[in-house]
Amino acid sequence: MSATALPAFRAPNPILAFIRAQPLGAAGLVVILVMGTAAVFAEVIAPFNPEAIDFMSMLAAPSADHFFGTDAFGRDILTRIIYGARTALTIGFLSSFIGCTAGGLLGVASAYFGGRADLLIMRLVDIVLSFPIIVLALVVVAVLGKTAVLGIDLNLVFAIAIPIIPRACRVVRSAALSVRQMPYIDAARAGGYSSTHIILRHMAPNVLAPYLILLTAYVAQAILLEASLSFLGLGVQEPKPAWGLMLAGDSANFYQEAPWMILFPGLAISLAVFAFNLFGDSLRDWLDPKFRT
């Protein structure tokens, strides 16, 4: 069935419409879905145990046994990349979700209350924004200590979410400010609804578009930040598989002899972030009427 033959049926399916309007974004989405599947079914897909040392095959080059080769401990790199997708996606989604939601709510509240509350929140936002992200992350990790829940480093999630909060807050606030001017908000206030009710029921849904755009964009940022932190040794800890970590430590030592050790994990990071950026970009173009053609 060709869409051009039956133009009347084009509109109802938003996914098809998105693919048609944003082929690049759709390509990004496909990559994300593939990675997501790999992450969920890692136990089934991955050929080896990601943490098991095998001294018999240390630093093996890519071959039929190990498609992406092995690292200094003989651990299969493909396996670690597949499990690494799980680490990257969970931490990326969780921290982006926490950061954007907290920041978004703060932004809406700030716009709704205005005045002193707005001023105070914006000052706090400025303060947190002026912090180098690495410092924030480091201290949060140190203060929260080790709190792995269901195998997820919550401290790391918070460390990455906190720098996102002020950034999301700013964007959502400016979107919410225009909603604030709408007559129905005044009507709701006159109707005696509580502030919480108005914020959650009337203002928040109207800033959903920027929120979704931010959410996808910051998943990409969060994955990148997790990789950087893990690279510096502040993030995920050995022997857990994580892409940034695979570029640190021993890899830094061996990458001249065993370039596959850095090649594939780096590609994995880039591809994931690339896909999210592509998708996020297209989503923005698609959702933001200003850019609609």
Binding site: A252, G266, I269, S270
Partner: peptide
């Protein structure tokens, strides 16, 4: 978009390599 995706430290390692 690739520029935003490639970690600069990895790019650095590739350059050195």
């Amino acid at each position: 978009i690739a520029g935003l995706a490639v970690p600069s430290f990895w790019l650095g390692m590739l350059l050195l390599l």
